[in-house]
Design a protein around this nucleic acid. Sequence first.
DNA 1: GTTGCTGCAAATCCTTTGCAAGGTT
DNA 2: AACCTTGCAAAGGATTTGCAGCAAC
Lengths: 144, 144
Amino acid sequence: MRSALATDSDLLNAIEDRGYRITSTRRVIAGAIEESPDGFTAEQICGRVPGVGRATVYRAIKLFHEVEVICKMALPDGAPRYAVDTGGRHHHHTICTGCGAVQDFRASTIERVLKAIEADVDGQITGHRMEIYVTCQTCLASAD
Amino acid sequence: MRSALATDSDLLNAIEDRGYRITSTRRVIAGAIEESPDGFTAEQICGRVPGVGRATVYRAIKLFHEVEVICKMALPDGAPRYAVDTGGRHHHHTICTGCGAVQDFRASTIERVLKAIEADVDGQITGHRMEIYVTCQTCLASAD
DNA sequence: GTTGCTGCAAATCCTTTGCAAGGTT
DNA sequence: AACCTTGCAAAGGATTTGCAGCAAC
């Protein structure tokens, strides 16, 4: 029965809904991800799931990203960082360059601007990427 | 005399102004970059400067980026792409996901929005990244 | 003549892939 | 039973680094 397999994990539910299997390994990885409210890197997850192969972690992250339950973003140097995509509606993120903490960020103004921009652009807009880099309160405080 | 050494290359002038040396190798690399109106990747430049070591090309690109005469951006998959930063004032780019062509893009609205956002953000904004992905006219046409 | 730059090759980092074994439906 | 997943190790690609020789100032 499917309901018996359902978990309280949005991540696992999402992949199950798309026909991927729920395995014990994926449960562990999903758990590690969901314990990362401030975002995470692949390497951080690897460190939190001893015994699970690095490749499996990367495959799982790619899977979660594919089914759109985690967002992928980039630090200023281009290094990838991920965050659980709670909610669902399109949004952007602020990333602390000190500690990497990610916060959601929804500004309807930006969406409106992007729509307006479409007219000025030579070609057809297919997507966009936007990240706001910050020094978070915690890092600001500890720098004093 | 400095004026005798000055070139018509903005790239070379920029590094010279910061105390870096102008060498024949850097002239060649700068030339290859300036022949790339649509942006370029490190690998593309390597291909256009036979005889110059890959490491030197990467070092030069990093240097030009450091003195802010080229911009670094990212394709949807995170792969880096560069473009000459003519002008100077802050701007963004559209990148064609088909051919990689980069175009400048200056929307004062965006800057205004970003400034407004500052109030809503938890922390201090230190920077941002924004790329608009498009299918350019050329690619649209050839897809027909 | 200093000091910085270059090329080569090796090293590194991050991520992906091949494959045989084991798990899930 | 059939097919998906996993772990390991190896491959892969992109960028960096050490170092000795060469070039610019």
